[in-house]
Design a protein around this nucleic acid. Structure first.
Ligand SMILES: [Zn+2]
Ligand SMILES: [Zn+2]
Ligand SMILES: [Zn+2]
Ligand SMILES: [Zn+2]
Lengths: 153, 153
DNA sequence: CTCACTTTTGATAAGCATTATCATTGCCTG
DNA sequence: CAGGCAATGATAATGCTTATCAAAAGTGAG
């Protein structure tokens, strides 16, 4: 899976005339390993461990390139700075964020197509994509809060 | 409606010990008039017309205050900078953005509660809020594109 | 209404994140 | 394995947001 994806990425870069360089490969490999939602600073710091000489500008440039190629996906949670994740094929999902500890979980149960038809009828738009984020309390913070309210009785 | 809302805002500010000042009133009045989704720069420029002396710092501070009080709502479209709209009571809605011209339309047909129960079961989160944005082509851009593809036959 | 107290304001400086610049390095094709 | 051109890394520049602080304005008591 990872290898096939990496080859597809390289092929896409070659087709568009971009060079496959050391820094770019390191960043792509890192992103295929990393399963979370790192921001640009985290990407920079993690890459620096294996490639100490890399510059922040290169990380910015590579992330922009991967976004342009559709390899990377950017998400915003509560309007905070951007976080990134690989755009694996056939993996439609959204994010659930804990309001207390910030933990991010993914969920795939998306029924958006049930409302999109009606929205298209009402607005006359043709819908192409959508973004959805849910906010609440994760299981850990939920039980912590329950304990707290019990204390207060 | 507008007057009732304005009074409710004033009351909320008094309760929290915030002073009702000229600049703050001007910004709130402007936001009740404005029906779009201005960003901080647009708010600043529009307010400056009626209150030429106002400083950018005050606009930033007032927007933060209104967000804290739940009077204002912030939205991000495609991870771009924040845009704002008043949090009118009982007006749950989301945004539909044209990928070509950027036009923003609101829609109220939201079936999120149909999926939230299942997501809560799977993830064990307690969901409190959600944000949803749809992207596509507005009616104008849609017909423009249809014309264009006809030309190309 | 006036005064005294406290918050708010506006101008300015400071702080960060992102982008632009440019000489040097390093892919890639032949 | 060399030449050409894109990419890199260091640094400067830009732009947006927050912090600072003296002056102004809102509030509540008298
Ligand atoms: Zn949590
Ligand atoms: Zn979806
Ligand atoms: Zn449009
Ligand atoms: Zn909704």
């Amino acid at each position: 899976m990872e290898e096939t994806f990496l080859e597809a990425v390289k092929e896409k870069m070659r087709q568009k005339g971009y060079k496959i360089t050391g820094p770019r490969l390191a960043i792509i490999r890192y992103l295929t390993r990393e399963k979370g939602h790192p921001d640009i600073q985290e990407i920079f710091e993690d890459i620096r461990v294996e490639k100490p000489g890399i510059g922040m500008a290169t990380v910015y440039r590579t992330v922009s390139l991967l976004l342009e190629l559709g390899i990377l996906r950017a998400i915003t949670l509560r309007g905070h700075h951007l976080r990134y994740e690989l755009n694996w094929p056939d993996h439609h999902h959204h994010h659930l964020v804990c309001n207390r500890c910030g933990q991010v979980t993914e969920f795939g149960n998306c029924n958006f197509q049930l409302m999109s038809g009606e929205i298209e009828q009402v607005t006359r738009f043709k819908i192409e994509e959508h973004a959805l984020e849910a906010y609440g309390l994760c299981p850990q913070c939920l039980s912590a809060r329950l304990d707290y309210s019990t204390e207060n009785i």
